[in-house]
Amino acid sequence: MSAYLPSLAGGMLIGASAVMLLLLSGRIAGISGIVGRLVQGIGITTNLAFVFGLLLGPLAYLFMFGGWPAVQITAGWPLIIIAGLLVGFGSRMGSGCTSGHGVLGLARMSPRSIVAVAIFLTAGVVAVAVMRGLGL
């Protein structure tokens, strides 16, 4: 059970922050939208506070578990940059990201979010299958 505790705590923090943002400001906790509004200068205080809270997340993990999580990234920088750009493009094209659709959209039973999350998951499975097939 203790192996799952960090993931459980992280999920609870994500859910709590999403619910707090929705209740306190009426906004969906979609990170692409929050960062987009921040860049546009819209709702600077709320959006900056949320982004700042995201950046404090690793420190909360360190405090709760006494060490940093083991992270291993085997992909090279070109692949990481291309993947990040594709995720950003897809988020704008799909009018939301995994956090907005997956966390609050599914909780609200939004049909658009249900379709978006199904597409996210399918694309992820296909991407892993292709990458493994190519030996990357």
Score class of each variant (00 low, 15 high):
Ser2Val: 13
Ala3Gly: 06
Pro6Phe: 05
Ser7Leu: 15
Leu8Asp: 01
Leu8Glu: 01
Gly10Trp: 01
Gly10Lys: 00
Met12Ile: 15
Leu13Gln: 04
Leu13Asn: 06
Ile14Thr: 09
Ala16Phe: 14
Ala16His: 00
Ser17Asn: 12
Ser17Gly: 13
Ala18Gly: 12
Val19Tyr: 07
Val19Arg: 12
Met20Leu: 15
Ser25Trp: 10
Ser25Leu: 00
Arg27Cys: 03
Arg27Asp: 06
Ile28Leu: 11
Ala29Pro: 03
Ile31Asp: 09
Ile31Arg: 12
Gly33Ile: 05
Val35Asp: 01
Gly36Asp: 15
Leu38Arg: 04
Val39Asp: 02
Val39Lys: 09
Gln40Thr: 07
Ile42Gln: 15
Ile42Lys: 14
Gly43Gln: 14
Asn47Ser: 11
Leu48Ile: 01
Ala49Gln: 14
Ala49Cys: 13
Ala49Phe: 10
Phe50Ile: 08
Phe50Cys: 05
Leu55Trp: 14
Leu56Phe: 06
Leu56Cys: 14
Pro58Phe: 03
Pro58Glu: 08
Pro58Gln: 05
Ala60Met: 15
Tyr61Pro: 00
Tyr61Phe: 03
Leu62Asn: 08
Leu62Thr: 09
Phe63Asp: 01
Phe65Leu: 04
Phe65His: 00
Gly66Asn: 08
Gly67Gln: 10
Pro69Met: 14
Ala70Asn: 13
Val71His: 02
Val71Asp: 05
Gln72Phe: 14
Gln72Cys: 09
Ile73Tyr: 06
Ile73Met: 07
Thr74Pro: 00
Ala75Pro: 08
Gly76Cys: 02
Gly76Ala: 09
Trp77His: 04
Leu79Glu: 11
Ile80Phe: 14
Ile80Met: 15
Ile80Cys: 15
Ile80Thr: 11
Ile81Phe: 10
Ile82Met: 12
Ala83Asn: 11
Ala83Pro: 01
Gly84Asp: 09
Leu85Thr: 05
Leu85Lys: 03
Leu86His: 04
Leu86Gly: 08
Gly88Asn: 00
Gly90Val: 07
Gly90Met: 11
Arg92Met: 09
Arg92Gly: 00
Met93Asp: 00
Ser95Trp: 04
Ser95Arg: 11
Ser99Arg: 06
Gly100Lys: 02
His101Pro: 12
His101Cys: 11
His101Ser: 09
His101Gln: 08
His101Arg: 08
Leu104Phe: 04
Gly105Lys: 02
Arg108Gln: 04
Arg108Leu: 01
Met109Gly: 00
Ser110Ile: 08
